[in-house]
Simulated assay, not measured.
Amino acid sequence: MDYINRIRSLREDNDYTQKEVARLLNVGQRTYADYEYGKTRIPLDSIIKLAKFYDVDMNYICGVSQVKKHFPNSKM
């Protein structure tokens, strides 16, 4: 579950509180904390929101890639 470390790192690197990120995801701070501690699995739609918010590829958040690529642009 590499995403646990990644979502915490991204939040801390960008100086956001758990409460601020929880608000973005429309969940309570306790629920978001449970995502970071691995007590609750984070829903896919929330991972997508975080990837867009932090402008990183979902593969990075999920631990598939070690490279921080930008979130894919929908325009081709």
Rank of each mutant, 00 (worst) to 15 (best):
7 I>A: 02
59 N>L: 09
22 A>W: 05
66 Q>L: 08
72 P>S: 04
15 D>E: 14
20 E>G: 01
67 V>K: 15
49 K>L: 15
65 S>F: 03
11 R>G: 02
26 N>R: 14
5 N>M: 04
75 K>C: 00
66 Q>K: 12
55 D>C: 02
11 R>A: 02
74 S>F: 11
16 Y>S: 00
72 P>N: 03
14 N>R: 06
8 R>V: 06
66 Q>I: 08
16 Y>L: 12
29 Q>R: 15
41 R>E: 13
67 V>R: 11
22 A>N: 05
7 I>K: 04
59 N>D: 15
16 Y>C: 00
25 L>E: 10
24 L>Q: 06
33 A>D: 10
11 R>P: 04
30 R>S: 15
55 D>P: 05
26 N>M: 12
45 D>K: 14
31 T>I: 12
56 V>M: 12
46 S>K: 14
20 E>F: 01
23 R>E: 15
1 M>Y: 05
35 Y>I: 04
23 R>D: 14
59 N>Y: 10
24 L>C: 02
45 D>L: 13
17 T>D: 05
25 L>V: 13
14 N>V: 04
32 Y>I: 05
47 I>G: 01
75 K>H: 03
36 E>M: 13
5 N>F: 10
49 K>H: 08
46 S>D: 13
55 D>L: 01
72 P>G: 04
48 I>N: 09
74 S>Q: 11
9 S>N: 14
10 L>R: 04
23 R>T: 14
16 Y>E: 00
65 S>D: 12
73 N>V: 12
32 Y>V: 06
5 N>E: 14
68 K>L: 11
71 F>V: 06
57 D>N: 10
31 T>E: 07
70 H>R: 09
29 Q>G: 06
28 G>C: 02
35 Y>E: 02
75 K>M: 04
57 D>M: 00
31 T>L: 07
69 K>P: 00
15 D>W: 07
61 I>A: 07
40 T>W: 03
17 T>C: 06
7 I>Q: 02
53 F>R: 01
49 K>A: 15
32 Y>M: 05
66 Q>A: 09
75 K>L: 08
26 N>Y: 09
61 I>F: 07
63 G>V: 10
59 N>I: 01
66 Q>V: 06
60 Y>T: 12
44 L>I: 12
63 G>D: 08
8 R>D: 10
29 Q>S: 14
2 D>H: 08
76 M>Q: 05
62 C>D: 00
76 M>I: 09
51 A>T: 06
25 L>H: 10
74 S>A: 12
24 L>F: 02
17 T>R: 10
45 D>M: 10
25 L>A: 09
52 K>D: 03
35 Y>F: 15
58 M>W: 00
24 L>K: 07
39 K>M: 08
33 A>V: 06
67 V>H: 12
64 V>H: 13
46 S>M: 02
6 R>Q: 14
3 Y>Q: 03
70 H>D: 09
13 D>L: 11
53 F>I: 02
12 E>N: 03
36 E>H: 10
30 R>M: 11
23 R>K: 15
68 K>R: 15
18 Q>E: 12
39 K>W: 05
29 Q>K: 15
